[in-house]
Every structure is written in structure tokens, then in C-alpha cells.
Computed example of a mutant assay.
Amino acid sequence: MTTTNSQPVRDVIIIGGGAAGLNAALVLARARRSVTVVDARQPRNAPSAAAHGMLGNEGINPLELLDRGRAEAQSYGAEILTATVDAARPDGQGYLVRLHDGRELQAAQLVVATGVRDVLPDIEGLSARWGKDVIHCPYCHGWEIRDQTIGIIATSATSAYQAMLFQQWSQNITLFSNGYEFEAEALDTLAALNIPVIDTPVAAVEITDDAVTGLRLTDGRTFSLQVVGVSSGKRVNLDGLEALGLETYDNPEGTFLRADDTGHTNVAGVWAAGNVMDPEIQISECASQGARVAVTINNELVFSRADAALAAARQAT
């Protein structure tokens, strides 16, 4: 770690301390890179009791998983700060990051691993059960809600396919269109699968004794069920990073950071990893992507140094 104007210059600052950011920090620290993780400690999956599909960590509490990850990265020298970023901007050949408490950090490279935040429909009781018995991903929660009575609340026309997907885990599926219209082929497929469609909008999630018990419609009817499936809208967490000029893209799920398969963004020296660039990947994939980005960063730094050394040697002869 070198110093400029009394300010330590790190090799890499990672903004975001989820699975992608922490695994990137772990790999970079093991590569003897000076790395700082800036993490607000507000993980998206905090409401969930368990994370699934993690080989060797199946069913682990998400917060415990992050605690383990922080400890592992720190054991190799990674610095982890609990903070939020007020601003980040180019600074000479690197980047300057200002934290909410006024501290300023400098680094040659930035990794944006800030993830996304979920935006739920404005339905009474929905957010209170989010991550418990109001869920969005059957691969994350399907085994735990198998064979239960599930109501899918539509948030777009693609919710018809979400209902079809959930039927792998339970035959007791009802789709509530909630004002959205579906294509004729989708409706025919739902009918062929014996998935009923209710057109009356949903007014509220019924909760009894700390559990979902039904959906109340705007016409007063109540449908008894045990689980609600709903696709949340997703918004990328880029607050404070506007001055970097990062390119985003929109898809039906929300707005995300554009990057290639190796994590390169449109800004040299700024990388992306995890759900901030792809809302579909799960925790294990986020961790894997963080590792891959870290390896690519280290490789580029190694060979950039080698190229500079060769150029200097040739100039000296």
C-alpha cells in the first residue's frame, strides 16, 4: 500500500460486503493485495432465516454466512469498514471514495458489489412477511413451502410463468392477476396445468399468529393460503456513485449495472460483481463471480506491472 498526500492508496476498494464483495476481498487479500471493503451491513436477504443451494453451507443463516466471510477475509489482511459511500470519483490514476463520516479512501481499482434492493407492490401486510412466507424464488424457498397452498400475486405479465414454475413444488397454486393481462397462450397453458386465475385485485395479505393465512381481495372475498409468491421490482444500489459515469441497463425486473462476463464496466478500473449486474444469480453464483472478478483484477495488475517493467528496461538500454 503506497501513500499519496498522506492518504494510503489501496490496490482495491470494494463497495458492498455481500457474497460477491466478500469473496472478491478474500481472493484479493490472499493474493497479497491491499483491499478495503465498505459495507453498510444491510443485506437484501436479512429477512430470510436460511440460505439454500450453498454447497457445504446448506441452510445457513444469511447473516452468519456474511459474518464468516468477513472473518475469513480479515484473516488475510482485508480491511472491512461499516460505512456508506457518499461519493466516489476518479482521482488521478485511481479513485477517491468519500464515506458518510467524511473519511476519504483512495484506490487504484474499484469493485461495485452493492447489489439491488427489492421494491414490493403496495399491498397491506406484504412487506411484513417478506422473506418468510412471502417469497419470490422457488429455488431459494421451494423445498420449505412444498405442497403448501400458494397464491402468486402478479407484478407483470411474466408472473404467469412464475406460477407455472412454482407448480414444481406444489400443485396448490392460484394466480392473482392483480390488474395485469396475460397473453392468450399463457392463459391456455395455465388452464391446461389447472392453475386458476383470479382477476379481482388483492387488497391485503391476511396474517394470523405470525403467519400468512390468506389474501383479501378488493371485493371483500378472502382466499385461504399459506404462502404468497411475488416478483419484486429491483433497483440497483448506486447511490453516491453517480460521478463515476457507470452505464446501466433496464430489463423487466428493474435497472442494473452493465458489465461484461469478467466484471469490466464501461469505466476503466471499475468492476461489477453480483446482483448489481445480474438479478437472477443466487448467493453461490454471486460468490463465484466475486472470486472470478478478483482473479481478473489481480491478473491485470500483475501483467500491467510486468509490461511497465519491460518497457522501462528497454528504454534504459
Rank of each mutant, 00 (worst) to 15 (best):
T3S: 11
T3E: 14
S6G: 11
R10S: 08
R10F: 03
I14Q: 00
I15L: 11
I15H: 02
G16T: 02
A19S: 12
A24C: 13
A24V: 04
A25Y: 12
R32M: 12
V37I: 11
V38I: 14
R41N: 12
Q42R: 14
P43D: 01
S48L: 13
A50G: 13
L55F: 04
I60F: 11
I60D: 05
N61H: 07
E64R: 08
L65E: 01
R68N: 13
R68A: 05
Q74R: 15
Y76S: 01
Y76I: 03
G77K: 00
E79L: 10
A83E: 14
A83L: 04
T84C: 01
V85Y: 09
V85K: 07
D86W: 02
R89G: 00
G92T: 06
Y95A: 06
L96R: 15
V97D: 01
H100V: 08
R103C: 02
Q109K: 07
Q109P: 04
V112T: 00
V116M: 02
L120M: 05
L120T: 01
L120N: 03
P121G: 06
I123P: 00
E124W: 03
A128T: 05
R129C: 01
G131R: 10
G131K: 06
K132D: 09
K132W: 09
D133E: 12
D133M: 07
V134C: 14
C137E: 09
C137V: 06
H141N: 15
H141W: 06
I145E: 11
R146G: 03
T149Q: 14
I152E: 07
S156F: 04
T158V: 09
A160D: 14
A163R: 03
M164H: 12
L165S: 08
L165Q: 10
W169F: 13
W169V: 00
N172M: 08
I173Q: 03
I173D: 08
T174Y: 10
L175C: 08
S177W: 12
S177L: 06
D188H: 08
A192I: 00
A192V: 04
L193T: 00
N194G: 02
P196S: 02
V197K: 04
P201V: 10
V202Y: 07
A204I: 00
A204L: 04
V205Q: 05
A211I: 08
A211L: 06
V212M: 12
L217W: 13
G220H: 08
L225M: 14
V230P: 10
S232Y: 13
K234V: 10
K234Y: 07
N237Y: 02
L241M: 00
L241I: 02
L241F: 08
E242I: 09
D250P: 00
N251V: 03
A259R: 10
D261N: 14
T262Q: 15
G269M: 11
V270R: 00
W271R: 08
A273G: 03
D278C: 09
I281C: 02
I283T: 15
E285T: 08
C286V: 10
Q289D: 07
V293S: 01
I297D: 02
N299G: 01
L301Q: 15
V302T: 15
F303N: 07
F303P: 04
A312M: 09
A313H: 14
A316M: 12
T317Y: 12
T317K: 13
